[in-house]
Design a protein around this nucleic acid. Structure first.
Lengths: 376, 376
DNA sequence: CCACTTAAGCAACGCTGTTGCCAAAGTGCA
DNA sequence: TGCACTTTGGCAACAGCGTTGCTTAAGTGG
């Protein structure tokens, strides 16, 4: 897709530390950068000179990069800007249909599948009931059939399939750990199984990470934020420098089992005083304010520890009473900021997304790398 | 120092998002990579072919890079390896005296200054009493005099001065926030003041970040760890991907004021249930086991949230009874791992370092960028 | 002594972004 | 209408990057 394939061009992909960069990698980096700016510009488009200004590259370099991207069919010229006293700028736009990716959201009881174009827009959608407990092979088969149904028309080239699902898993190898309540999934190589079945690249990640990735792409941020998801469980996706932080074993984000009440009430995980236990208990007894307060304390911990810029809230429970949570969490962050004696104003917002958010994020697992958003 | 100056070579350093890469940046990246491997190899040295293998670059590219570095005086040939059936490999070594950096540790009651060579080894050292409350100008002046005394011999080119001190501060601009107990420092532009006085580049950072940076460099890791410092206060330095994580406003690492006991005892910061409050109280009443347990709970939170690979403990209180803390924290991490049902073994160790650790880290604020360890 | 192996440099090359220059396409004033 | 000016963007030449192909250097081992 990007000319000479997938990038680094190094002889060995195994270099332990940081690895050397050659001209192919440089080309691919700058190309991705330009593509990302084109994507961000959306329908409004962007001119060569603006691209040069934003990337720090010379106009001539941008012209060459654009010429390559046009040859590859990723970019087109689309009209002209108004003149500012000279030749008017040429508007450039991403070609949305130059590539598609499928996003698959496997939840406990439902499956959602979307096809997204290069801009991340949903161009196709399917939903189906799902029983995660039905066994790995059955689930893989029905997921594969949904994907095939979605791709029936078969127009744009398919980059691959991203799968998002709950619970700890190994993102690098695409192997599940024990999905809470479904022990039969432990150790199942979902990525390999689905890739073999569909004969296409597959990437697997946690649902919270997928949601966070979608938000990072949608916000076009290279900064940091935390996406906190409160539904049947409590988890978080962390974004630093515009990339999802997955950690050494891709298990980061276990926000729900942060202990916030030493020797507190027992949690399902076996520990005591986890945020999730306190929060869900408060929700269960109808005390949403207290749930928001607990969540806010956890969010303040995040902000203090990691110095993130933004907190986004999502999940079924939050969506039921968004104002209560935004206010409650916001109040805790403001109080924390006040105690710090400074004005490190960290906004709290509800994450846009809706019911397709996670599936869109799953598709972004394949789209985002094209735009230089590395796998973290 | 590195040929054409400091790197990126872009026309503007202000690009908001990720920025474009040109050939100078590529050259500087690969050069830094090679230098880092040479530094890591230490006195044993490393051959061109090993460098090629480790970087993923071709042997010829490495030969060219080494030729440049030799011309710049950063690298020398130093003997030969035993033959393995052909021409023996040429051993290459970093030239330690190609550059020096000063590290300054300003503590509440003492000043420690070191000069380090390129390998990070201490080649000069001075200590002096210090009264942080004596006022900014007086402290800057006495610090400057210590630095000048240390550099009297004036041999190797000086890269600059790194300053590490407690309390929140703005690393990017080198401006202090309110140092606990010394309100007169709030807003003082330490970096600018010292740079003007000494006419040399100055970098300012928190003491915990400096200590963490020294450890990252010493361990030569590109992975992740947390350095937890327990002395008169409690703080942490976080390292992801071999780089110190400072966060959006360079205030990350406020580990001590993570709330771990909702509505717990009042902390000096005004909040309730901070780890620091619980931990210091336990230490004060002689219950070191409990202090270790609290610290361990906090460390488990870190590991769960960020999926780091290693926990390092340091600071005066830890050094007094290292075994108690290592065992206590380790027990909490093991228990946490057991509850996860997996074997994500996260080792706990005492951070080597001694009384010069922070000052050495301060020097690394200037040395590390030469070896590709960006300011993160 | 000679075949073989391994290390490292020389020369040519393809490709990168950059520089210098020029054509295209507007505006604005006389 | 004409001309000076501004701005955009491409063409051509270039320096410099890592790569490739080959040669030279310097060992081992029969």
């Amino acid at each position: 897709m990007n000319g000479n394939g997938n990038g680094t061009g190094n002889r060995n992909g195994r270099a332990a530390g940081a690895s050397g960069v050659n001209l192919l990698a440089l080309r691919s980096h700058n190309g991705a950068l330009v593509l990302d700016l084109l994507r961000t510009a959306g329908a409004a488009g962007i001119s060569r000179l603006e691209l040069a200004d934003r990337t720090g590259l010379t106009p001539q370099a941008v012209s060459k990069i654009i010429a390559r991207l046009r040859t590859d069919g990723l970019v087109t010229e689309a009209g002209y800007r108004a003149s500012t006293g000279g030749k008017p700028r040429t508007v450039l736009r991403l070609v949305p249909d130059a590539g598609h990716a499928v996003g698959l959201h496997l939840d406990r009881d439902a499956l959602t599948a979307v096809v997204c174009d290069l801009t991340g827009a949903v161009v196709g959608e399917r939903r189906a009931p799902l029983h995660l407990g039905a066994g790995a092979d059955a689930v893989v088969e029905s997921a594969a059939q949904e994907v095939e149904g979605l791709l029936a028309e078969g127009d744009a080239p398919l980059l691959g399939v991203g799968v998002a699902l709950p619970g700890p898993l190994d993102h690098l190898h695409g192997v599940l750990h024990r999905v809470t309540g479904f022990p039969e999934w432990e150790g199942f190589p979902l990525r390999a199984a689905l890739a073999r079945r569909l004969r296409t690249p597959v990437v697997v990640d946690k649902d919270t990470n997928a949601a966070a990735l979608r938000l990072a792409v949608a916000l076009a941020t290279h900064g940091s934020f935390a996406y906190i998801h409160l539904g049947t469980g409590l988890g978080a996706g962390l974004v630093f420098g515009g990339a999802v932080h997955r950690g050494a074993r891709t298990r980061a984000g276990e926000f729900g089992h942060q202990v916030i009440q030493l020797d507190g009430p027992l949690c399902g995980c076996g520990n005591r005083g986890c945020i999730e236990a306190l929060c869900l208990a408060a929700v269960a007894r109808g005390d949403v304010d207290e749930a928001a307060r607990v969540l806010g304390a956890g969010a303040a911990n995040l902000v203090g520890l990691l110095d993130i810029e933004l907190v986004l809230l999502g999940g079924r429970t939050v969506e039921e009473q968004p104002d209560v949570f935004v206010r409650g969490v916001g109040a805790m962050l403001d109080e924390w900021a006040r105690l710090q004696g400074e004005e490190p104003y960290v906004p709290v917002r509800v994450a846009s997304g809706g019911s397709l958010g996670v599936a869109e994020g799953a598709a972004q697992l394949l789209l985002a790398p094209l735009f230089g958003r590395a796998d973290g």
